[in-house]
Design a protein around this nucleic acid. Structure first.
Lengths: 241, 241
DNA sequence: TTAATAGTGTCTCTGAGACAATATAGT
DNA sequence: ACTATATTGTCTCAGAGACACTATTAA
């Protein structure tokens, strides 16, 4: 064993995006089908390696976000929530992946029945509980990301990021119910949300559905931290419906 | 411009440890003096590069923890809380650092006045507010780590990790006051802590200080998640004392 | 007895949970 | 009028905050 000067090992750095949205009042996550060989054909999170040596990690996450989904990147919430670098997780070598959580509002349908761009949205329940084949350790990353979203809904105004620019209180309640996987009392929810200063601000009256009283519209307010927080019921590990 | 096959850039991966403890009822962080040239002589967080190519990141954090402080690694709480990989943060090249938060109980003094090993413990206030010269972006990492500790104290039983195997309720209160930087009512604290099921369990009676009624001793209980959480007062950004 | 710290009791107010009642639209 | 949804009230109970009081030790 010679006395070579020690040099630190290098790793490949990647970003993975857990992009969540609501579809039919259920939490969905954006997945893509891998086109190249490690796990080719399997579903995986959007993401990839740093593009060039000087690219910032957050910038890479934003870039992937605008590549994979073509969303208004600036308006989206995007937050780092974990690092995954277990030695064996990628057969190509030592890959360390920084995981980001993004929340997207319900997008307008790509076209008519064109679920080609739509194919990527998968129900979070089926991904987490089902036997869907996922690449790498992406099932765990999704689980961690969803859990992070659940916690953030308690303490921040993140829920409004699931909605469009304006929304009704019922829309907002749907977000909480879908992400937490439980049912909430509409009356208590209404009271709570209204009382929380700066969470949502009025934005006119809606002309919405076919039947029933029209709901008031709101847009997200200035406050990002909810005080007091939204309280998640104790049995919030049960599955909805 | 030729059509070379694109290869992803590589980075050097490091871990940095924010090790917190209590000394004289004030929050302290462990810093070391850098011996080699980037920022040589400045204070920095304990940490370093991965040692070999197959080393797990968490394992590297544990290794650094037992190297820098020689603490009982198994007993310590150690949790990843962020990634710092801005391109310009290290003059040596592209270094991405995974930050860990560790909590250590008050250690027995290294010897008599031997503050050689003691020199590393710096007051968190002076580090965050002061003009102490810190290497890299370590001041921000410390700020993020301290903030993480503050939040975790609300929702988990982390506070007991600052104490020894047994402690009094006043000891525990000191932890909350030091980390949050506020004063708490001893009577309400007592009631709250006692009522929280599984947080702390009795462990005999103390024979403690020179004067006053001896306090009961406790050890940390089985519950790690506090329900309901400890509520941090609103003005918890003010400085204590 | 006094000093010093440990621990208990009480009152009030806010906020969560359960649930009834009213308002406003379309048909 | 009837149906469906939105919005407002009311009651009760748990828990936080403020504060007075009792208990147990050493000197």
């Amino acid at each position: 064993m010679t006395d070579d000067p020690w040099v630190p090992p290098v790793v490949l750095l990647a970003v993975d995006l857990v992009i969540l949205t609501l579809r039919e009042s259920r939490l969905h996550v954006l997945l893509v089908e891998r086109g190249i060989d490690p796990y080719k054909g399997s579903l995986a999170l959007p993401g990839g390696f740093l593009q060039h040596d000087g690219e910032d990690i957050t910038a890479a996450a934003h870039r992937e976000l605008s590549e994979e989904a073509d969303l208004d990147v600036e308006a989206l919430s995007l937050e780092q929530f974990g690092v995954y670098g277990e030695p064996g997780r990628d057969p190509r070598g030592r890959v360390v992946s920084v995981a980001y959580l993004a929340i997207a509002p319900r997008l307008p349908e790509p076209s008519a029945g064109t679920d080609a761009a739509d194919a990527g949205w998968q129900s979070a329940d089926s991904v987490l509980l089902g036997d869907l084949e996922l690449a790498f350790d992406h099932r765990r990353i999704i689980a961690d990301g969803v859990e992070r979203a659940r916690v953030k809904l308690e303490h921040s105004a993140l829920a409004t990021a699931f909605c469009g620019p304006t929304f009704t209180i019922t829309d907002l309640q749907d977000v909480y119910e879908a992400v937490w996987g439980i049912s909430l009392d509409p009356r208590n929810f209404y009271r709570k949300v209204q009382k929380t200063e700066g969470f949502i601000v009025p934005a006119g009256t809606a002309r919405k559905a076919a039947t029933g009283r029209p709901a008031r519209l709101f847009r997200s307010g200035p406050c990002t931290v909810l005080r007091p927080p939204m309280t998640r019921p104790a049995e919030a590990a049960s599955v909805k419906e």
